[in-house]
Every structure is written in C-alpha cells, then in structure tokens.
Amino acid sequence: MNIFRILGDISHLISILILIHAVSTTKSAQGISLKTQAAYVVVFVSRYLDLFFRYVSLYNTLMKLFFIVSSIYVVFLLNRYKKNSEKTNDIFPVWYLFGGAFVFALIFNYEFSIVEILWSFSLWLESVAIIPQLVVLQRTGEAQLLTTHYIFALGLYRALYIPNWIYRYYTEGRMDKIAVISGILQTIVYSDFFYIYYKKVVKNLKFKLP
C-alpha cells in the first residue's frame, strides 16, 4: 500500500460523504445526476463480486462494502428528494455508456469468464460514468459549491491511482493494463472539469461553466 493509493481511496471516500452530506442537508437532489449515481451502483456491484470468493484484506473488504452500500444509499436519497415537477437536466443517453463499456469488456479482459468480463466492464463504465453528471453541471450553468467539491474529490481519486500504478510498476513489477488505460481515460474525462475547478474554485470565484 503506497501513499498515492491511500490518498486516492480517501478522496474517493470523502467524495461520497460530501455527496451524502449535500443531498441530506439541502433535502434536494437538484444538480445531481441520478444516471451517474445509478451507474456507480452497477460499477461497484459488478466489480466487487469477488467479495464472495477472494479475500484481499480487511481494509479491502470494508471499503468494497462501503462503496456498494453507500452508492445504493445515494440512489435511495436522490429518489426520495427528487421532485417530479423539476425540469430535468439529466438527459444524457446513459445506455450508450453501458453498451460501450460492455463491448470494451468483451474485447479487453484477462480471461473470458463472467467474473473477469464484469470486472473489466466495471472499469470502463466507471471511467465514463461521470459524463451525465458533467452534462447536468453544464446545463445548469451554476452549481452548488458542494457539488463541485464532490466531483473534484471523485476525479482526484482515479488521478491519484496513476502515480500509484507507476510506483507499483517499479517496486512490484506489477502492471494492470486494463486498469491503467481505463484510469487514464477516466482522468481525461475529468480534465476539462479540473481546469475549470482550478480557475473558479481555487481562485475563489463562483463556479460557473461557460
């Protein structure tokens, strides 16, 4: 376990806590993409099937359980606070992401078995799952500060995994090609957001997309 991976996992954990905090204190689902959150439930459930047959560490097991349970809880919260009268900005055709991730998983996997294909599927889906949320952000124009912090912490997590993979390549000779390539893709998807976040939030201005 190296510092990049721990910081990455912590930032992932924090992002979810920020989201739960934001939705439960405002009692509003506004500005949050239900499609993105539902995609994360699929991501975690399909990736962590190995909970049933592979033990890595207590840390690993607890984190996996946390991500599965919290993602389901978030979807439950969003449904609870979603107002039908609200004009929705959550319009991205999310099935394209599911379909694309599935095709990629069939092509790129370590073994042509259900568990390995679902594992690869979860990585590809995760790498693009934020897109409906970014679309909501763009259409809303202005977002709550907490929402932008949430997206930032979530993006930071996979970005921190990149130095972790470089570190593990040199120290352990370990190279997980599928995770690395999908992880880089995920970070690229975020790059535009990171730039705007830096300009608007770090420089203490109101978050507004052009």
Binding site: R5, D9, H12, D50, R54, V56, S57, N60, M63, K64, F67, Y110, W119, Y161, N164, Y169, G173, R174, M175, D176, K177, A179
Partner: peptide
C-alpha cells in the same frame, strides 16, 4: 513484469 494481476485494488 507480471501482466496478470490480482485485482487487489479498489
């Protein structure tokens, strides 16, 4: 380097 991995990450 090993190409196959153990899936020990989150």
């Amino acid at each position: 380097p090993k190409v196959q991995t153990s899936h020990d990450e989150l």
